Amino acid sequence: MTKYRTGRLNEEIKKNVSVIIQNKIKDPRMSGLVSVTRVNVTRDLSYAKVYVSIFGNEKSKEDTLNALKSSAGFIRTELSHSIRIRHIPQIIIELDTGLEYGMHINSLIQEIKEKGKNDE
């Protein structure tokens, strides 16, 4: 399988999983805004690691992540209705902390800039 095909499949799964999460999951533990940031499918198409970013406090993030992990089978079933491939991969939900890490680095840079202005 070429990288181009894998990339297209990653984007197709990302788009469809995002729609499924927003419109079809009715779990009461889901609170806050959930965004699918990226998807990585293994070469043999047996697993798809779905990275999600969840906005909210720590408790709501944990509850929402648990709800998403428990609904992975439902997401896979719904994905099979919208994507026509021979084998639908197992869905693994992971929390993407890249956005929080980026905001933390940005705040550190701002502190350094402010400290540099005050020293002048």
Rank of each mutant, 00 (worst) to 15 (best):
I25G: 05
I25R: 07
K26A: 06
D27F: 02
S31V: 10
S31A: 15
G32K: 05
L33I: 13
V34S: 00
S35A: 09
S35E: 13
R38H: 08
R38E: 15
V39R: 11
N40E: 14
R43L: 14
R43K: 14
D44P: 05
D44C: 10
D44M: 06
L45A: 10
L45T: 14
S46E: 15
S46A: 12
Y47K: 14
Y47G: 03
A48R: 01
V50C: 06
V50G: 03
V50N: 02
V52T: 06
V52Q: 07
V52P: 00
S53H: 06
S53W: 08
S53Y: 12
I54T: 04
I54F: 10
N57V: 13
S60E: 15
K61S: 04
K61A: 01
E62P: 00
T64C: 06
T64P: 03
L65N: 05
L65Y: 02
N66G: 13
N66L: 13
A67G: 02
L68N: 02
K69N: 13
S71H: 14
A72T: 04
F74A: 02
R76A: 11
T77A: 12
L79G: 09
L79P: 05
H81S: 08
S82C: 01
I83N: 08
R84N: 15
I85C: 10
I85H: 05
R86Q: 02
R86K: 14
R86E: 09
R86N: 04
R86Y: 09
H87Y: 14
H87R: 15
I88F: 07
P89Y: 06
I92W: 00
L95I: 13
L95Y: 11
L95H: 08
D96F: 04
T97W: 02
L99C: 01
L99S: 10
L99M: 09
Y101F: 11
M103P: 03
I105W: 09
L108H: 04
I109S: 05
Q110S: 11
Q110N: 11
Q110W: 07
E111K: 13
E111R: 14
I112R: 09
E114I: 04
E114C: 01
K115W: 01
K115T: 07
K117V: 02
D119V: 02
D119P: 00
D119W: 08
D119G: 08
